[in-house]
């Protein structure tokens, strides 16, 4: 296994190329004029940036982006606050029945969205919460809750007991202990959870597809899922629309990539 270094780099580069070629493919495709017939990966004769403008307009992206941002902006803080409070209650205050409750939340991790979404649509239709931001926001918060509660509970149960006891001896109330003692040392965990929630909210497809019939209230991915049906053959236009939807999440990933990584790896590893 001498000379392994170049072999190692060779395989790494090959794998990286396999991951990146599809990206290169749609970037190149998007730079062709709308309606052009493409033959594999090809460099356009001239960069057609206007394809993006056209995709934005045809895809109704002003409304889609507004919905996506609106939903994420409410879901993320709402779900993070609820998960943090519940994690605190379960791990530190150790409420009556906390084992049963923890188990009930963790069970939710294995429920496929299909089994929730069918009845959820008809339940929310009865109370007028379909085609409603409120309905989607609460439903997403519920879907994300098992992971968030599990994550914050795990985090809090690793905080040294003495830290909490010391604050209590000083007479601090429960909420003060959480706000003044626990939260200041929990920002990494909270940031990770927020970034994950943002990603899941941004990428959520089936739920929005079912709940939002009104095209102006759909989110970017669900709008894209239907856009593809209308412009099946216009590859440059589809590629541009894809890039528009991908761009925000890629930017968030590159900025917060360490949070992403620690969230996904540590959150997933349970006892």
């Amino acid at each position: 296994m001498r000379g392994g270094v170049s072999l190692r780099y060779g395989v790494l580069v090959l794998l990286a190329v396999m991951v990146l070629v599809p990206f290169a493919g749609i970037v190149l495709a998007a730079l062709h004029p709308s309606g052009a017939q493409l033959d594999g990966l090809s460099i356009p004769d001239r960069w057609s940036w206007e394809t993006f403008a056209l995709a934005w307009e045809r895809g109704n992206f002003t409304n889609l982006m507004r919905s996506s941002v609106l939903i994420a902006v409410f879901v993320v803080p709402l779900a993070v606050v609820m998960a943090t409070l519940a994690g605190y209650g379960l791990a530190v205050l150790r409420v009556w029945g906390h084992r049963t409750l923890s188990f009930a939340f963790v069970m939710g991790l294995t429920l496929p969205i299909e089994v929730i979404v069918v009845a959820l649509y008809f339940n929310l239709r009865e109370v007028g919460l379909t085609d409603s931001y409120v309905g989607v926001i609460l439903a997403e918060a519920a879907l994300f809750m098992p992971f968030g509660v599990y994550w914050m509970q795990t985090h809090f149960s690793n905080v040294p007991e003495e830290l909490i006891e010391a604050a209590r001896i000083d007479g601090a109330r429960d909420l003060v202990v959480l706000a003044r003692v626990l939260l200041p040392i929990s920002w990494p965990a909270v940031t990770t959870l927020s970034v994950l929630y943002f990603m899941w909210s941004w990428n959520q497809f089936m739920l929005v597809l079912v709940m939002m019939q009104d095209p102006d209230r759909r989110t970017a991915p669900s709008g894209l899922g239907l856009f593809v049906g209308q412009y099946t053959t216009d590859i440059p236009l589809l590629a541009a629309a894809c890039l528009i939807v991908i761009a925000p999440i890629v930017v968030v990933y590159l900025v917060f990539q360490r949070s992403f990584v620690s969230g996904i790896t540590q959150g997933a590893i349970k006892g």
């Binding site: 599809p22 990206f23 493919g25 749609i26 495709a29 493409l38 990603m199 941004w202 990428n203 497809f205 970017a220 991915p221 669900s222 894209l224 899922g225 593809v228 590859i235 589809l238 590629a239 629309a241 894809c242 939807v245 991908i246 999440i249 890629v250 990933y253 992403f260």
Partner: peptide, 13 residues
Amino acid sequence: VLPLVAVGITWRW
């Protein structure tokens, strides 16, 4: 991290 819808459209092409 990408939405699977965008991944799907890319691979379809």
